[in-house]
Design a protein around this nucleic acid. Structure first.
Lengths: 288, 288
DNA sequence: TCAAAAGTGTTGGACCTACACCCATGT
DNA sequence: ACATGGGTGTAGGTCCAACACTTTTGA
């Protein structure tokens, strides 16, 4: 599609006169994990977890961060991300991913201008990951404040994002401000305090919102579950991510289209056996 | 939040050893435009339009492109974008915007590795824009092909994206391939042919999908409408973007919450007068 | 008078919410 | 026996698609 004139121009072209930023790809890796319960009857409690590694170099040495790297210009963006998680935490191929958002605040990296293209990765608890730690995600709604102004409104929210591994607790305070004024609309996510490196708490928060929203209109949740699962397991998974309780009977009816029964049952659990289901991949394909 | 050690490190830090890419911000600017009708009774036909400028320099000289620029490291990303549209097409402040996606394919710019952070901008037809042309957007669904494979499916779609201004017609062929195989999922948007510069047809296509999807769960459409509008105007706007016809009575009931009646009426149109409505900004705020 | 848009009414069905209720299991 | 989860049934309401119908207007 290039013209001859283009070709000639490109032979002589020397790279942009503009000063360039550094660019990284960063991966927010989630899984759902079954915490063991003391009571033999009770089902394990499900926790949403995020994978963090401890930084070995300055800046933010010894702080925890999501997995990321400066991009390699010989790779596609997603290849850079995939190579990174494969090298750094040995996560290979057994995950879902999607691009999340591109963060480029001037002050987000003290070294220089660094733009982060972030990805959300979903995997399940049978997948091995190495070199970091899984942190339980606990997002607490601290306060909400709505003001009506002429031609719109201001909505302010505060959250606490607490991340807990076996050895460490990391606290983060997040402040959201949505301003709607006529046609103009602004959404700001700010960190009031963070135990993580860089603005990684903000990126994790953004990923949590995306994940929650996508539950409603996609079948993204199955990427966090094993191949076969009970309906109560599926319901608990929804509840953890949505941070609300659902009614059992209604849940079963609503999700019926998304799953297919298998001939397997789970037994030996101190209560009635439960049928195992698997994801119905084709639910939204309208196959004729 | 930086330690003393960090500070010392930063004093000595010289910029990344990694080779850096160039980064641009690019704006897909949409509006809804009323095409005049011959028949005095009929309402004007609404068209979704996108704003393109003709490139003055190589490469792709004289090709049409969306508005964009290399980023300025002294600006935030959205500031770079806003400064760009203000300078290049005189579009100032009277628009809605959101970050769309970051495109970074290795071959998307023949000059060098250029990563594009794209934005979608929505404005209305009373806003002046200068230096380019508005193109009617016509997206045609050419073919769909679904195949079931073990553990998933392959979905292939072809579209034609035709862009028409008063003087010019630009044709683009787009090929979508969605592969779902167990937990792994891939979505590719490829250009089979394009009259636009770079991969800008792909970016516009992506924006069209986003806009259509967001109609369902946001009130984003009001950014494309004047302050006051009739319900039929609103309905036609939905129809143009969704590319499907809606039933009038049902539409009125469904959108009732999103709008507020005003005391104004539209007259002089060869048919019954119609009440003018405005956007109810607060519909999803749950004001107690 | 009439074509076009504005706007209302109705009916059957799908789905949703809330709750009550029974079943099966391992200790 | 019993606590726990597995699973079904139902009554009332809401929402929705589809269609028919009436009203109002300017030329």
């Amino acid at each position: 599609m290039l013209t001859k004139e283009d070709e000639k121009f490109l032979e002589l072209y020397s790279d942009s006169i503009y000063e360039k930023p550094s660019v990284t790809v960063d991966a927010v890796i989630f899984r759902l994990f079954d915490k063991p319960q003391e009571n033999y009857r009770k089902l394990p409690e499900k926790k949403l977890q995020v994978y963090l590694t401890k930084r070995q170099f300055l800046p933010y040495k010894d702080k925890y961060s999501i997995v990321g790297t400066f991009i390699d210009l010989n790779f596609e963006l997603n290849q850079s991300m995939q190579y990174c998680v494969s090298q750094k935490v040995n996560l290979k191929n057994n995950y879902y991913y999607e691009q999340l958002f591109t963060f480029g605040n001037k002050d987000r990296d003290p070294r220089s201008r660094v733009i982060s293209i972030s990805y959300m990765l979903l995997t399940n608890q049978s997948t091995q990951v190495e070199g970091g730690e899984w942190f339980d995600v606990d997002l607490v709604d601290v306060s909400t404040n709505k003001k009506q102004i002429k031609g719109g409104y201001v909505l302010e929210k505060k959250y606490e994002l607490n991340l807990t591994s076996e050895t460490t607790t990391l606290k983060n305070q997040i402040f959201i401000k949505i301003t709607k004024n006529g046609i103009e609309e602004q959404k700001n996510i700010e960190l009031l305090a963070s135990d993580l490196a860089f603005d990684h708490a903000r990126i994790i928060f953004y990923a949590l919102e995306r994940l929650k929203n996508k539950l409603e209109y996609t079948d993204i949740i199955f990427n966090l579950l094993p191949e076969k699962f009970t309906l109560t397991e599926l319901k608990n998974s929804y509840e953890v991510i949505l941070r609300e309780k659902l009614l059992d009977a209604n849940f079963r009816r609503k999700t019926a289209k998304l799953v297919m029964p298998t001939s397997d049952y789970e037994t030996g659990k101190g209560h009635r056996t439960s049928q195992l289901f698997e994801h119905n991949n084709l639910w939204n394909l309208d196959i004729d």
